[in-house]
Design a protein around this nucleic acid. Structure first.
Length: 434
RNA sequence: GGAGGGAUGGCAGAGCGGACGAAUGCACCGGUCUUGAAAACCGGCGUGGUGAAAGCCACCGAGGGUUCGAAUCCCUCUCCCUCCGCCA
């Protein structure tokens, strides 16, 4: 969430910044209004409280002096004030809760560097890459045998079985089998191994508490998007960003320990509630998929470098897999609520003739850190400061799987996989008809 | 799942109804001493809210309650430890 002090002192600048996201500023006015009332009530409560406390001390002193009569008199006064104080406290608490609820749904301020725009169509393509581009190869065109959607390739080769997935869990829960299942596992291991030079591998829980999803900004606003296990009040994580952001929740880190870099391979669960009926085929949009996440807690000064490091690592994975991709700089209208700046990576999928989002690399400034209360003690002294958080997918593997089997499809229907995966596939880089 | 024991500042650990935001030790930061360091000694050393400031308020796992007054008493919950049962 945003800093309430900043909203008070720079309300016009905050509104101006949020206007770039298409907000009209009324939510800021609402917070300011509530905040003024909250502080008024708080002051009243605190002064009553202060008086009760000093009277209580008088009672103690009188009793010690053996003056029971005086003690009883002061007690009576204090009791009356105490009742008043309780009322004031409830009033202050109620409106304080409103302030917090309102703050929780106000999105982050976009970075000044993020391009302006209203929606997806205004995102800025920064660059494209394809195999051989460095040697001057032209942007690839694709053969007819590559123009087969992955769900058909998957069925032909018995490596993806959406029907059985649906039988087990309902539609949009994929089931990989045989060489397809092994390919998915290979991709995850390959990605994790690629980052162990700088990132600590973590295997976090797959379910998380409400607080944990609130810390990243997934709650309260997007509760429709996440699976909830009501009986135990646990949410299925929509991304490893959720548990990783809470790894240090409520902690104060030493500046010397920053940046803290973590990576995790987890399943990700999404209800896709707003997307009913769209992209229902194959792996374009599924309720469960595996993803490797790269994550860092940083000082504000380290954030940009950490953000670019994750972007570079995600791109490097795509290049080593030989996939045709593009990098988008998301416009202010398309950036997620918690982020200040986001780059998306999209892979070209010849079988469905679309660019598929396989990574989203975001800088959250202190927005999530404030919600999660993750701070660091500056080495030069002074009070604790909020860290910055950055993260990015590296990568969303179901969609990569889809692109690989389409791009790698040969004229005879078999699929050729990239060389880098050889160690993870026992040297079997070809998938052919069973 | 059953039975017990815990949770206090960065760490360890006292306090168990009034002068306690909290003893003491360690760690840490200044200073004295020293050629320098160590030791010793002196001083400092939590977080947040509110206020122009002085100050005031909150926080002893979390949430409720009792009381003039709660770290301390009561209730609920969470987590940790020990033992038993069950289990991949």
């Amino acid at each position: 969430m945003l800093d309430l002090h900043l909203i008070r002192s720079e309300s016009d600048a905050v509104k101006e910044s949020l206007r770039r996201r298409g907000l009209d500023g009324s939510e800021i006015d609402r917070v300011l209004e509530l905040d003024i009332e909250h502080r008024r009530l708080l002051q009243r409560q605190e002064s009553l409280r202060s008086e009760v406390k000093s009277l209580s001390k008088e009672v103690g002193a009188a009793k010690r002096a053996g003056d029971e009569e005086a003690a009883a008199a002061v007690q009576a006064r204090s009791r009356a004030l105490g009742d008043e104080e309780r009322e004031a406290a409830h009033a202050a608490e109620a409106i304080g809760a409103e302030v917090r609820a309102q703050l929780l749904v106000i999105p982050n301020l976009p970075s000044p560097d993020a391009p302006d725009g209203a929606g997806e169509e205004d995102n800025v393509e920064l660059r494209r890459w394809w195999p051989g581009i460095e040697e001057g190869a032209p942007e690839p065109t694709y053969e007819d045998h590559q123009r087969v959607p992955h769900w058909e390739v998957g069925e032909e080769l018995s490596i993806l079985d959406m029907e059985r997935g649906a039988k087990i869990a309902g539609s949009m829960f994929p089931l990989f089998r045989g060489a397809g299942s092994r390919l998915l596992r290979a991709l995850g291991s390959f990605a994790l191994d690629s980052h162990l030079d700088a990132y600590e591998e973590v295997r976090p829980p797959t379910f998380a508490l409400t607080e944990t999803l609130t810390a990243t900004g997934h709650l309260p606003k997007f509760h429709e998007e996440a699976y909830l296990m009501e009986r135990d009040d646990l949410w299925a994580i929509p991304t490893a960003e959720v548990p990783l952001t809470s790894f240090h929740r409520g902690e104060i880190l030493a500046e010397e320990d920053l940046p803290v870099r973590l990576t995790a391979l987890t399943p990700c669960f999404r209800r896709e509630a707003g997307a009913a009926g769209r992209d229902t085929r194959g792996l374009l949009r599924v309720h469960e998929f595996d993803k490797v996440e790269l994550f860092a807690y940083t000082t504000p000064d380290q954030a940009e470098a950490a953000h670019l490091d994750i972007l570079e690592r995600a791109e490097q994975l795509l290049r080593s897999l030989g996939l045709h991709y593009r990098v988008l700089d998301l416009c202010t209208g398309d950036i997620g609520g918690s982020a200040a700046r986001t780059f998306d990576l999209e892979v070209y999928s010849p079988g469905v003739d679309r660019w598929l989002e396989v990574s989203s690399v975001s800088w959250f400034s202190d927005y999530q850190a404030r919600r999660a209360q993750v701070r660091y003690r500056p080495a030069g002294g002074g009070g604790p400061q909020l860290v910055h958080t950055v993260n990015g997918s590296a990568l969303a593997w179901a969609r990569i799987w889809a692109a690989l089997v389409e791009v790698g499809r040969q004229a005879d229907g078999s699929v050729k996989l990239p060389e880098v995966l050889s160690p993870y596939l026992g040297g079997r880089l070809e998938i052919s008809r069973p």
